[in-house]
Amino acid sequence: MDRTPFVTVVIPLYNKQRTIARAIASIRAQTLQDFEVVIVDDGSTDASAQELAACGATTDPRFRCVRQPNAGPGAARNAGARMARGRCIAFLDADDEWLPEHLQHAAQALGEGGCQVYVSAYDTGAEHQALQVNLLQCCIARSGRWALPPALGPVDVKRIVDACQVSCLVVDRALFWRLGGFYEKHRSTFGEDIYLVIQLVFGSDIWFERTPQVLFHVEDSELGLKRVGERPVRPHLLEPEPLRGSCPPARRAQLEELFAFYRMLETEKFSRKGDWRAVLRLRRAFRWPQAVPHELRGRERKVPWRTVVTALGLRGRSIG
Rank of each mutant, 00 (worst) to 15 (best):
V201K: 01
K185Y: 14
D205V: 04
G181P: 00
K185G: 11
I194S: 12
Q213G: 04
D205S: 12
D193G: 06
Q199D: 00
E209I: 08
T211C: 14
S188H: 08
D193S: 05
G181L: 01
G191F: 14
G191D: 02
W177Q: 03
W207Y: 14
P212W: 01
G203H: 02
F190A: 13
S204Q: 12
R178K: 06
F190H: 07
F182H: 09
V201Y: 05
F208Y: 06
L196R: 00
L200A: 11
S204R: 07
V197A: 13
T211S: 14
R187A: 15
S204H: 09
G203L: 00
Q213D: 09
R210L: 06
F182L: 12
L200D: 04
I206F: 01
G191W: 15
Q199T: 07
V201S: 10
E184R: 02
W207E: 00
I206S: 05
E209K: 03
V197I: 06
V201G: 05
G203V: 02
F208N: 11
L200V: 00
W177D: 13
G191Y: 12
Q199L: 05
R187C: 14
T189E: 15
E192R: 13
D205R: 02
T211K: 12
G191L: 11
T211L: 05
P212E: 07
Q199N: 07
H186T: 10
L179E: 03
L179K: 06
S188G: 12
G191A: 12
P212F: 00
L200H: 03
E184D: 13
L196Y: 01
S204F: 06
V201P: 00
V201N: 07
L200Q: 06
T189P: 13
V197E: 07
L179I: 04
L179N: 04
V197M: 10
P212H: 04
E192I: 14
Q213L: 04
F202S: 03
Y183E: 10
F202T: 03
Q199A: 08
V197C: 10
E192W: 05
R210Q: 09
V214A: 02
V214C: 08
S188C: 15
I194M: 15
K185M: 14
D205K: 00
E184A: 01
E184S: 09
E184H: 12
W207I: 02
L179R: 13
G181V: 07
I198G: 03
E192N: 08
Y195N: 05
Y195I: 00
E184I: 08
T211G: 11
E192H: 14
F182K: 06
K185F: 14
F190D: 12
L179M: 04
T189W: 12
G181C: 09
Q199H: 00
I206V: 11
Y183M: 09
R178H: 10
I206Y: 00
F208T: 07
S204Y: 07
